[in-house]
Design a binder for these strands. Structure first.
Lengths: 197, 197
DNA sequence: TTAGGCAATTAACCTAGGTTAATTCTTTCT
DNA sequence: AGAAAGAATTAACCTAGGTTAATTGCCTAA
């Protein structure tokens, strides 16, 4: 995949929302990142004020607490935009790292420069709003699940939401997505196995 | 406060972000809601696809689980936009109710009609993006606090973030914001009192 | 083929926070 | 002022999930 193709599929991803975007405005140079399985696109605490696009592969957002506990905020499957909205917008350090769970191909633009050019495009602004609405809603639903449901229920919901990841992902990562330890997850799986024959 | 004044302060709130917005476009009629302390602007499960603006007073977003547990997602102090982005945008039922903690004055517009008119205004689109960025970042930070910090730490953070609410709000509500029971909060306060003389 | 290393399970024990209920302290209403 | 209702505290007990560690299974590399 060469740069032109990457650029095209990035644009196509936006265009699919149905707004008319004039991509000629965009002249800031794109960067390409090839991330090997297990490696990080960026680490918690970095200054990651870029807009990233995941062309191929699977990644996870992982934040680690002071005591060294890992928490998986999200799994991200290509194609989609990835990165930290907070770090992009407020120029602060990022609260989580993004790790490749498979070999990944990512492209990126520096957000400030990108936005400075594209903000004059109505279609882009609407796309961006749709994007923000979507990620907000997802966060809200996840918050809801966390405060209203037990770990067992969250595990079942995970299985329903990500049937393909359920069997391929190491259970440590599933546990850290649910917000419990691998030991606790194992216990829950054991219990579920018994209770349904 | 008459309708014109309400309209003006609504517009002023947006204008403060520094974008140029042509409010002449907006012709959908505004509604006014006066909510008494303790009452709800809308209840969990309602269809609340309106854009609300809190002119005066204090409210909280509260969602209740199947088992009847209350969880306070946010406290909202005027002036600010309130409501459910998810319910507005996706026309689904709202996941939480909004309750007045003081007597409140709220105005509102039906979101679809409002957006249909204002989406042609560049300044508005940018404002809306700033708004979405902000609420997303706040959610992200709260998620972070929940998964990384203990209840005790979350209480201390609450006290630092809302010094004025700390003493005026009933502790049940503080507890439900932190995600624990009033009994547990009382225990934590007791412990803190001892440990610092 | 086997040794080394990691992932998952299991068991024993621990702890933060939930539950219930009794007690005290505050409001508020008459 | 006194009664009634609600808010906060305290205590006793319970439970989900954390912690540590031993055991088993699986994969890979020599």
């Amino acid at each position: 995949m060469d740069r032109i193709q990457l650029q095209n599929s990035f644009e196509a991803y936006f265009n699919e929302l149905g707004y008319d975007i004039d991509w000629q405005r965009l002249t800031v140079p794109m960067e390409v990142h090839v991330i090997q399985k297990g490696d990080y696109l960026f680490q918690q605490g970095d200054a990651a004020n870029r807009l990233y696009f995941l062309h191929s592969g699977l990644m996870r957002y992982v934040s680690v607490s002071d005591e060294g506990k890992e928490f998986t905020q999200t799994f991200a499957k290509s194609p989609r935009i990835i990165g930290s909205t907070k770090a992009m917008v407020t120029e602060t350090r990022v609260l989580f790292g993004i790790q490749a769970l498979e070999n990944c191909m990512v492209s990126s633009y520096p957000w400030q420069a990108f936005y400075a050019q594209m903000r004059h495009d109505m279609g882009f602004l609407e796309c961006y709003a749709r994007f923000l609405e979507r990620i907000f809603i997802i966060k809200e639903e996840r918050e809801n699940a966390f405060v209203k449901h037990s770990a067992e229920r969250r595990y079942l919901d995970f299985c329903a939401a990500y049937p393909e990841l359920k069997n391929t992902l190491p259970q440590q990562q599933i546990a850290s997505y649910i917000g419990i330890t691998p030991v606790a997850l194992s216990r829950i799986r054991q219990k579920l196995k018994l209770s349904q024959g």
